[in-house]
Design a binder for these strands. Structure first.
Lengths: 201, 201
DNA sequence: TATATGCTGGATCGAACGGTACACAAAAAC
DNA sequence: GTTTTTGTGTACCGTTCGATCCAGCATATA
């Protein structure tokens, strides 16, 4: 009973997500959101309640369609050295192939860490959960790699933790630099891959 | 000829700098700037021309009074292992001692990288110059450390470059995380110091 | 077809935004 | 003391912000 929405919700969220990705939460205006989604204010507010509601939906979409597909191979049972190197390869391809004016440069959540998360506890938690998830995925693949290259010896968990933390931080810096200096971002990705190779030759 | 300013310019710039540091360029309103500086709009515009002019002055002050004093020891003739470890020690102290609601958490320029620098070429250049300066300082101290621990052998420049890039990236991540998860930020600083120790035992 | 329900377009809201105009006050120059 | 130059306070500019309201329309249910 009642009229059906004339838009496709996932498409709208994706369009909004790319705008937030590019501009950040505050700098993305409702006029911009109307433009990129093709929806009027009424529909936007009816469907998402507020600008923040739309942003939250965009973040959820970002995690599910951008972040997790990238991390999934690192979490596979068999993940190890090769999965790590493919992770960096895929990231390099993405950074290198994006046009300079693409809205999808860097990472929505890394940008969020420097912006919203400074004063919004909810946003801070989302960003920290992302960091945690990224670190866990890298840790898992590092453990697998250690089992491959030095079979039989359990890697010291302290070493594993430090390496995972290091790689996660390098990934975040890569995303930060992607908006500032693409060549440096790519060089950093190469450095991260080289680090993995030196740990697991 | 003419009236003297009734304010101390460096004090005003410092106050504005701390606000920009905390909120970022766009989220710091003129009303906020009036409040923290104690000056009226007229005086602000008369002295700095625009909000952006004040921001640029704040960035210059930030580089000169916050960044460069920290990097200077790394650039000393004698800089090496000890200088690097002291650099991380100082950073740890700063991150650990700042109250959770301090405006001076993280790094103004790292925040800028995720915000303004995305669409402002001038800001992008300032941020990239900062990255370059940070990397150069770390590279210099790493070269010194290599000369200390393995005297006589010139360190391979490629290795030096990768290590400098890694440490610079870790520093930027530390600043990013300082606004999100202080404990993780400190853990990352400890990891960076441990990395230096493992390279130069 | 009648009705109930929910989507949509457009107008509009009050608040906040960055920026400006101008009269006045104060101090240096003469 | 007069003049000249410059800083300051106040009021206000037009624009944009996120958000809301409401009339009208489309459609699933009965």
């Amino acid at each position: 009973m009642g009229r059906m929405p004339s838009f496709d919700a996932p498409v709208v969220v994706t369009a909004a997500r790319d705008l937030f990705w590019d501009r950040g939460f505050e700098a993305a205006s409702l006029a911009d959101l109307e433009r990129v989604t093709g929806l009027g204010r009424s529909s936007l507010y009816h469907a998402f309640g507020s600008k923040r509601g739309l942003f939250d939906a965009a973040v959820a979409d970002y995690l599910e369609t951008v972040i997790r597909p990238r991390l999934r191979p690192l979490l596979a049972e068999s993940a190890g050295r090769a999965a790590l190197l493919e992770y960096y390869g895929g990231l390099s391809l993405a950074v290198a192939s994006l046009p300079a004016d693409s809205p999808r440069r860097g990472c929505l959540l890394v940008n969020c860490a420097a912006g919203l998360a400074g004063h919004d506890d909810l946003a801070r938690k989302v960003v920290d959960d992302y960091r945690s998830e990224l670190t866990a995925a890298l840790r898992h693949a590092l453990a697998g790699a250690a089992a491959e290259t030095t079979p039989g010896t359990d890697a010291a968990t302290a070493v594993l933790e430090e390496r995972a933390r290091t790689l996660a931080s390098l990934s975040m810096s890569v995303m930060l630099l992607a908006r500032v200096n693409r060549d440096e971002s790519l060089a950093l990705l190469a450095t991260a891959a080289a680090q993995v190779r030196s740990w697991h030759p």
